[in-house]
Design a protein around this nucleic acid. Structure first.
Length: 941
RNA sequence: GCAGGGGUACCCGAGCGGUCAAAGGGGCAGGGCUUAGGACCCUGUGACGUAGGUCUUCGAGCGUUCAAAUCGCUCCCCCUGCACCA
């Protein structure tokens, strides 16, 4: 294979081997300025796909850029192994889940190894290796691999234990009852969109019903569950499903009638619940009456088939004036009951429910879809615009949005009601059992609602570098909204035992808030310079809080490290972390760490999705294995793809063809750079200076973009603009070895953070020694900027465009092209105007006077005044950069002459270049009069 | 309802007061290279135009400005989170 072919597989392997053998990734204290970057470590839940690599790649790009800017970069990584994912994975292996076994086999594991993975700890060990070897190293990441850690390691657990001791000290651990999803079979489960624990209902939410105790004549309680307790004043009747067999239960000292299903749920939520053997058919209840608590009004029990025994208590209170379901059921029942309107809303008459039903043409309680719509509409209007009316006694005149909780609390406080939690949709556990909501009487929480903590964090976040800006603006709101978080779980979870309650495990969000600090220590643990058993409270207090004294020399060494590297400069994570991980990351730092150790920056990136904005997933295809993709497209191509295909702050769609295009582009650049070797060395003063100048401008632009973590802009400059620039230079006939060399050298340096492997290869080809990854950037050199030559090329570009345009329109095949640059008097006038404008003194009368004061102008007064007035308006509109262009002293004729050969070739025509001031100009059509500065006149024959 | 983000040429997407008929891809059309190959290169791709021009366009409509895709207001539509919905 020829050396100029882009054999990315070989190249990537070769350089990774070298980097990792020489451990160039180690964080060293050398330059006295440091940069700490890390990504939100991944959970260990199985093989990752190409989407995950986006954020990791951003991190490596930034880290590599910073190290080339002479920062001591520390870029550590680890695994979030706590929680259930790895247990879930092990369980799947144990029960021989087809998908799982298949994927493991595809990855090349043998039976024996697969068997081992029924142990969660083995799962973590295995995937930790896959992540490091097959993902991170394959992508050439200069992660400090000496610091790799996992959240279930002994050392880490010590660290988390310490953190919770500190939280307790600060009174940020509190105890209160909690209601959590629970599977009777498997214990606690997490209900979230990823559905790791469950097989159905991931988007379900926990609703809080108020169960109002209606009293029957024999004192039995008829508990009606509602989300709108304030409507109690408008209740006209109850709905009982005639086809359901209800049961009687003892709740405390009370006797309740409710559905069997409701009872099963309540058993987990309320104490002293006991089933009796008594049952009663729904239809037997109908016809009885009961009393509304507080109000005492007596109401009938009617037949309502829509009362679902699976929802809440199975018994529904009827508010026909405000609930469309109730209204329609009432109409259908044929009962002569008058709805009671208790909420006045602008835009509604006396019966909002009826009104909405009529609007939507609802005729029957079976039209649930329409009824849901109507309900939503009524509620929306009432909640925001409604006031309780005079029928609501002391609550009259109060806005619904303000009253809701008040009514609820009064009912509860007077034992007229209680609460019941219920999922908004059915949730089924992985084991196929329905998930319930269970009360945990004294759950521990981290008190994120703490006002002082919240305020401090909000205030601090203002001083941080947060990307994108939108998130920075959003963050204070998120911090306010963030409520206490239950921080321990009981069940089969991996993690650290909670120091204040035996057998309970700290849950995974709470154990990953301060973890970047542990990267400083993990190195010493990995190297066995300190044993987890030595990592006591005093140890961490000393390292992190500067409390107490160093008890061993190694303590001092670690502390020096911590003080050098900490705080975090950038914590980078996907948008899913915006409302969970990042807020707790900040709040814990603010709560526990000294002020100067608080994080300095957060970078949020969006996702890689599949076509149609679907979240990438294996079942829907497109989730290419990272290892395969790396072979298919090349790692550098993928890095370039991530960096360039979209802004970091939008979702991008994974598209194989697009990745292929990037691969081709890289191959082109690779070949192009190789081809420069064959150029003959030849100078071309103007052009050379132009290239040199352009290079510096690009460097400036690229650095600026990188400094703002504007990776896409930087990448665009490097891989698109720079290629255009050098192509133009070559096309124009540029061939100066020294200049090209310097351009290429800088180009390769700039490319390195994004496509490090290719850069290394070309760097060696260019007979440079050492790793380009270890090189430093040279500073932007303003002295190499040559405005004149930049303008010259701008002029030339304009001339060629104009000629092309003329040729296109006239369809002439040119024999001779005449170019006339503008006469000096026009240039003078133009410059004059610009100067005056810059001084803010451009005014017509003065302008003319000043021009005419020159004798040479007077002799040409007519043309001069014509031109001056024409230019007057134009100059007023000029932008700053245009002004610079026009004011520069450039000999247009000479510049164009230097490009004569190029023009000749380009148009296959003879080229004649004149200045309008020249004598004996050939100008049969008097085109010279059109010549203006930087816009020569053209005549073609 | 609250909060946030959007609507840009055939498509994806950048731009976010003048350098914008609007980057960059892709698609399409033509040409080149060639073992005429889905690789690569060049040209074109709003309309009109036999001289470098003119006209119309950045969801819709008003407005601010010498100047608006870019700023303000109103409206329509899409997405995300939260709230809410027996």
């Amino acid at each position: 294979m020829a050396s100029d072919t882009y054999n990315y597989i070989k190249i990537e392997e070769k350089w990774q081997k070298k980097w990792f053998e020489e451990k160039i990734y180690l964080a060293n204290k050398q330059n006295n300025k440091k940069f700490f970057i890390h990504f939100a470590y991944p959970g260990v839940s199985g093989y990752l796909h190409v989407g995950h690599m986006r954020g990791f790649t951003y991190c490596d790009i930034i880290a590599r850029y910073k190290r080339m800017q002479k920062y001591d970069v520390i870029f550590p990584a680890g695994f979030h192994a706590s929680g259930i994912p790895s247990i879930g994975f092990a369980k799947k292996v144990e029960r021989k889940d087809n998908q799982t076994i298949k994927s493991l086999k595809e990855y090349g594991l043998d039976e024996k190894h697969i068997q081992k993975l029924s142990d969660p700890n083995e799962v973590v060990t295995y995937f930790a290796k896959v992540y490091v070897e097959d993902y991170w190293k394959k992508f050439g990441f200069l992660i400090d691999y000496s610091r790799i850690m996992s959240t279930i390691s002994e050392g880490y657990k010590k660290f988390i234990t310490w953190q919770f001791l500190k939280l307790k000290e600060k009174n940020l651990l509190i105890k209160k009852p909690h209601f959590a999803p629970f599977c009777p079979n498997c214990g606690p489960v997490a209900v979230d969109k990823s559905e790791t624990d469950i097989s159905k209902g991931g988007s379900s939410e926990i609703l809080e019903f108020t169960v109002i105790k209606f009293i029957m004549t024999d004192k039995t309680i008829l508990p009606a569950a509602t989300l709108r307790p304030e409507t109690i004043f408008g209740v006209t009747n109850m709905w009982i499903n005639p086809d359901v067999e209800y049961i009687k239960a003892k709740i405390g000292s009370e006797k309740w009638i409710l559905s069997k299903q409701a009872f099963e749920k309540l058993k987990n939520q309320i104490d002293n619940v006991e089933e009796t053997n008594e049952k009663i058919k729904g239809k037997d209840l109908i016809g009885n009456t009961c009393k509304i608590p507080i109000i005492g009004r007596e109401i009938p029990l009617l037949s309502g088939s829509f009362a679902d025994p699976n929802v809440a208590t199975g018994i529904v209170m009827s508010v026909p004036a405000h609930a469309p379901f109730d209204w329609i059921a009432l109409v259908e029942s044929g009962e002569n009951i008058e709805p009671i309107t208790i909420i006045d809303v602008k835009g509604y008459g006396t019966n909002p429910a009826k009104q909405e039903c009529e609007k939507l043409g609802i005729k029957s309680q079976n039209e649930t879809e329409k009824l849901d719509l109507a309900t939503e509409e009524v509620y929306k209007n009432e909640y925001h615009k409604g006031y309780l009316n005079e029928k609501c006694a002391k609550y009259a005149g109060i806005k619904i949005s303000d009253i809701k909780d008040e009514v609820k609390n009064e009912l509860i406080n007077n034992n007229h009601a209680t609460l019941m939690r219920e999922f908004s949709e059915e949730v089924i556990c992985r084991c196929q059992t329905p998930v319930l909501i269970k009360q945990i009487p004294d759950q521990w929480f981290i008190k994120y609602s703490d006002i002082d903590l919240t305020d401090q964090t909000k205030k601090y976040s203002e001083s941080m570098n947060i990307y994108p800006q939108d998130y920075k603006n959003e963050l204070p709101g998120v911090l306010d909204w963030f409520d206490d978080r239950a921080c321990i779980r009981q069940g089969s979870w991996l993690g650290t035992e909670f120091p204040f309650k035996k057998g309970w495990i700290i849950e995974p969000i709470s154990d990953s808030t301060l973890y970047p600090a542990y990267y400083v220590i993990s190195k010493y643990v990995n190297e066995e310079k300190i044993k987890p058993s030595d990592m006591t409270e005093q140890f961490f207090d000393y390292i992190f809080l500067n409390k107490g004294k160093s008890q061993k020399p190694i303590w001092y060494e670690i502390k020096k490290d911590f003080d050098y590297w900490y705080p975090v400069d950038i914590n980078l994570g996907g948008k899913e972390h915006k409302t969970v991980h990042f807020p707790v990351f900040l709040m814990n730092h603010v709560a526990v760490m000294p002020k100067e150790k608080r994080p300095r920056g957060i970078f949020v990136h969006w996702w890689v999705t599949q076509k149609g904005k679907e979240k990438i997933s294996k079942s829907k295809g497109g989730a290419e294995h990272i290892k395969e993709a790396a072979t298919k497209y090349g790692v550098d191509s993928m890095r370039l793809y991530y960096a360039h295909v979209g802004s970091p702050f939008v979702d991008i769609e994974w598209d194989e063809e697009t990745v292929t295009k990037y691969k081709n582009r890289l191959a082109n650049i690779f070949k192009q750079i190789q081809s420069f070797k064959e150029l003959k060395n030849q100078k071309n003063e103007n052009l050379d200076k132009w290239l040199r100048s352009n290079l510096q401008r690009t460097i400036k632009k690229t650095f600026d973009a990188f400094e703002n973590f504007d990776l896409r802009v930087a990448t665009n400059e490097i891989f698109f603009e720079m290629q255009k620039t050098i192509s133009w230079y070559i096309k124009r006939g540029g061939s100066n070895k020294e200049i090209i060399d310097s351009f290429v050298k800088n180009w390769l340096l700039l490319m390195t953070p994004i496509t490090p492997h290719m850069s290394e290869e070309l760097w060696t080809n260019y007979a440079k020694s050492g790793f380009i990854s270890n090189e430093f950037y040279s500073k932007f050199d303003e002295t190499k900027i040559s405005e004149k030559d930049e303008i010259g090329e701008y002029l030339l570009q304009g001339v060629t465009d104009d000629i092309s345009e003329i040729l296109k329109v006239t369809k002439i095949i040119p024999k001779k092209i005449f170019i006339y640059t503008s006469p000096s008097w026009k240039q003078k006038i133009f410059r004059k105007a610009i100067t005056l404008k810059s001084e803010n003194k451009l005014e017509m009368r003065m302008f003319m006077k000043e021009i005419m004061s020159e004798p040479s102008m007077k002799s040409n007064a007519k043309q001069v005044s014509q031109y001056a007035s024409k230019i007057f308006g134009e100059v007023k509109k000029l932008s700053e950069s245009d002004k610079n262009k026009y004011i520069a002293e450039i000999n247009e004729k000479d510049y164009l002459k230097s490009a004569e050969e190029y023009l000749k070739k380009l148009f296959s025509s003879e080229i004649k270049i004149f200045n309008t001031d020249d004598k004996d100009i050939y100008d049969p059509e008097g085109k010279t009069r059109f010549a203006v500065p930087l816009r020569p006149a053209i005549f073609i024959e």
